[in-house]
Design a protein around this nucleic acid. Structure first.
Lengths: 237, 237
DNA sequence: ATTATCTATAGATCTATAGATAATGC
DNA sequence: ATTATCTATAGATCTATAGATAATGC
């Protein structure tokens, strides 16, 4: 009673590498929410449940911790986008390739790995306000597989006669589609509802996003009718 | 030589309201760049060329200054979008309404008033990472005139037989178009080039964005051919 | 006399480190 | 004996205020 406990271990002793990963995991949401400058080392320590000093034992500075978080995000988002890699290049695949990100982001599906998409988007947006390095890594590494596939499928669709409108660039369309989904995500970052699409059902929303994109690419209505059957897509996943 | 100048006025004396506006103007780029938490009152003072104390004489706290900046942005962006208000509701107007933001943002035209669009976008994105209040004010007040006009024109186009595809919602399309342009802007916030559309000429880029959107809305190709003549749009401005 | 401005500084963080202590594993 | 963890704190900001001084306008 008299003696003040000078010492109180709040967290269990665990091996180095394990703790390091645990710090990364628990610190990510804080950095994602507030950014490098927006949060304090105290908050980071509290989120992890350890002392500030311990964090410094594992990461020499706050900035280096932040960089580690970014790398962590990139490797963890190995993107099961890879699934798409095996698709043949065709009009049908084009439809699936456009549907895929719409569905994933709008339905707010976790991308397999435990990394919450929401945090990832926040990290990207923080990066857009900074030097953009992380956003670049994310967009141009993680998404490139998908982008290449979309481009190839557009060509295939054109050869199949399903696209006849002229295009000034091949590579613009993956980006335009990407803009649609990522902006959806960005505008949904705050709790406050910013956008009213006038559609309640998420599946309907996915439909309208996808159809907008497919028509925008110039896919003929007959090809869309032929290949856009979202119910079947789901079964095949 | 001996006597140290304890006192050195670095800025001229100017009347209260004038200085207040001057502070707002000079502080905006700093807040836009780094956000509320990302910059110090020292930086703000230096950007204005006055002492920190003076800033506190005009604005009781950093947060209140930031809020004032946001209000300042909103009022200053009275948006010459109002120009569109007088357009008749027709397919032709639809084409112009879609072209307008594409042109404005992609050509990086200053929106008449001296407010740099770049700063405005940064403020919006900072808000998206926060509570989204400012983004809401911006999107739903500033853009609502344009959005209403687009909706009305889509209806008119449908009545004119230029749109035949079914739509599940009226209000989704202005947002989809908005997503395209704002995401273009967001991805161009960092100095680093993140996106390669495969198109060098900005006019061509505006064309592809606009055509993508018009097709996406479901406007028939014949209507697009009939009304999309960007050269003429410019002359009329 | 009033108003605009500055210098100087208090008090509150915030990052990072030094050094002590407890747990683990040989 | 080694490793993981903590407490305590130094030193560096950072926000905001108190109080002094210079310019303006009557």
């Amino acid at each position: 009673m008299e003696q003040i406990k000078k010492y109180r271990k709040t967290s269990k002793r665990i091996p180095k590498e394990e703790r390091k990963v645990q710090i990364l995991r628990s610190v990510l949401p804080v950095f994602a929410k507030k950014g490098l400058r927006g949060c304090t080392t105290k908050e980071l320590a509290e989120a992890t449940g350890v002392s500030e000093a311990l964090i410094y034992k594992h990461f020499p500075s706050k900035e280096i911790l932040f960089d580690s978080i970014e790398s962590f995000c990139l490797t963890t988002t190995k993107a099961n986008i890879g699934i798409l890699e095996s698709l043949e290049e065709s009009t049908e695949s084009l439809v699936r390739c456009i549907y895929f990100p719409m569905y994933t982001v709008l339905q707010n599906e976790m991308v397999q790995n435990e990394m919450d998409d929401h945090h990832l988007h926040r990290m990207v947006v923080h990066s857009l306000l900074g030097d953009g390095e992380f956003a670049d890594d994310f967009l141009n590494n993680t998404y490139s597989i998908w982008q290449d596939k979309v481009e190839a499928c557009i060509e295939a669709a054109r050869e199949a006669g399903d696209i006849t409108v002229p295009h000034k660039s091949k590579s613009i369309f993956p980006w335009l589609v990407q803009h649609l989904v990522s902006c959806y995500a960005y505008k949904h970052l705050p709790e406050k509802k910013l956008v009213d699409y006038g559609i309640d059902d998420t599946e309907d929303l996915v439909d309208e996003f996808t159809l907008f994109a497919l028509r925008g690419i110039g896919l003929s209505q007959s090809a869309i009718d032929r290949y856009y059957h979202p119910g079947e897509f789901l079964r095949l996943r």
